[in-house]
Simulated scan of single mutants.
Amino acid sequence: MILGLRTAIYPVNDIAAAKAWYSQALGLAPYFDEPFYVGFNVGGFELGLIPDGQSGVSGPQPLWGVADASQAFTRLVELGATPLDAVTDVGGGIKTGSVTDPFGNRFGIIENPHFDVTGIR
């Protein structure tokens, strides 16, 4: 049985630069840091970086929770990301948006006032 999201992995062409950028963007240091993989614990879920992968904005599109989508979107762009999908209210007070990180990957965000952390297992 599928238990839920555990890890989203982003391929990058420069793992040192990606580690620095994601440390700044996420506001935390990686808990796992090896040349073949860098892992961040983001609210109980893992954001992983792998070197020498194929970056891209198509394919799976995880959305990372934020308290304020507009503020988070602006901050990511200030850190060097490129706007991809503007922050949009998709209904029910839920807002989503995405940027392209400096390594060519889609990085999506979601402000969801209905998300219940007690449902995480």
Results as ranks from 00 to 15, higher is better:
residue 2 I to K: 06
residue 2 I to C: 03
residue 3 L to F: 14
residue 4 G to F: 04
residue 5 L to D: 12
residue 5 L to S: 15
residue 6 R to C: 14
residue 8 A to R: 12
residue 9 I to Q: 08
residue 12 V to S: 08
residue 13 N to V: 09
residue 15 I to T: 01
residue 16 A to N: 13
residue 17 A to W: 01
residue 17 A to L: 05
residue 18 A to D: 12
residue 19 K to H: 04
residue 19 K to D: 05
residue 23 S to M: 10
residue 27 G to I: 02
residue 30 P to N: 03
residue 32 F to Y: 13
residue 33 D to L: 10
residue 34 E to Q: 12
residue 36 F to V: 06
residue 38 V to C: 13
residue 38 V to L: 11
residue 39 G to T: 05
residue 40 F to I: 02
residue 40 F to D: 01
residue 41 N to S: 11
residue 41 N to G: 01
residue 42 V to F: 14
residue 42 V to H: 09
residue 43 G to V: 03
residue 43 G to W: 00
residue 44 G to F: 14
residue 45 F to G: 08
residue 45 F to R: 03
residue 45 F to Y: 07
residue 45 F to I: 02
residue 46 E to G: 02
residue 47 L to H: 07
residue 49 L to Q: 06
residue 49 L to H: 09
residue 50 I to M: 04
residue 51 P to Q: 02
residue 52 D to N: 15
residue 52 D to T: 02
residue 55 S to V: 05
residue 56 G to R: 07
residue 58 S to L: 06
residue 59 G to C: 09
residue 60 P to L: 15
residue 61 Q to Y: 13
residue 62 P to C: 07
residue 63 L to N: 05
residue 63 L to S: 06
residue 64 W to Y: 13
residue 64 W to H: 09
residue 65 G to S: 10
residue 66 V to C: 15
residue 68 D to T: 06
residue 71 Q to A: 15
residue 71 Q to C: 04
residue 71 Q to G: 13
residue 71 Q to S: 15
residue 72 A to I: 00
residue 72 A to F: 02
residue 72 A to T: 06
residue 73 F to C: 12
residue 74 T to D: 14
residue 74 T to C: 05
residue 75 R to Q: 15
residue 76 L to R: 02
residue 77 V to A: 03
residue 77 V to D: 08
residue 77 V to F: 15
residue 78 E to H: 04
residue 80 G to M: 09
residue 82 T to M: 09
residue 83 P to C: 07
residue 84 L to Y: 06
residue 85 D to H: 09
residue 86 A to N: 08
residue 86 A to Y: 14
residue 87 V to D: 01
residue 88 T to Q: 11
residue 88 T to G: 07
residue 90 V to T: 05
residue 91 G to Y: 02
residue 92 G to W: 06
residue 92 G to R: 03
residue 93 G to F: 08
residue 94 I to D: 00
residue 95 K to P: 05
residue 95 K to M: 05
residue 97 G to D: 09
residue 97 G to T: 01
residue 98 S to R: 02
residue 98 S to H: 04
residue 98 S to A: 12
residue 98 S to L: 03
residue 98 S to E: 08
residue 99 V to I: 06
residue 99 V to P: 04
residue 99 V to S: 08
residue 99 V to R: 06
residue 100 T to Q: 13
residue 101 D to L: 05
residue 103 F to V: 01
residue 104 G to W: 01
residue 106 R to E: 03
residue 108 G to E: 04
residue 108 G to L: 08
residue 108 G to C: 07
residue 112 N to I: 04
residue 113 P to V: 06
residue 114 H to T: 07
residue 115 F to I: 00
residue 117 V to C: 01
residue 117 V to L: 11
residue 118 T to W: 03
residue 119 G to P: 04
residue 119 G to A: 10
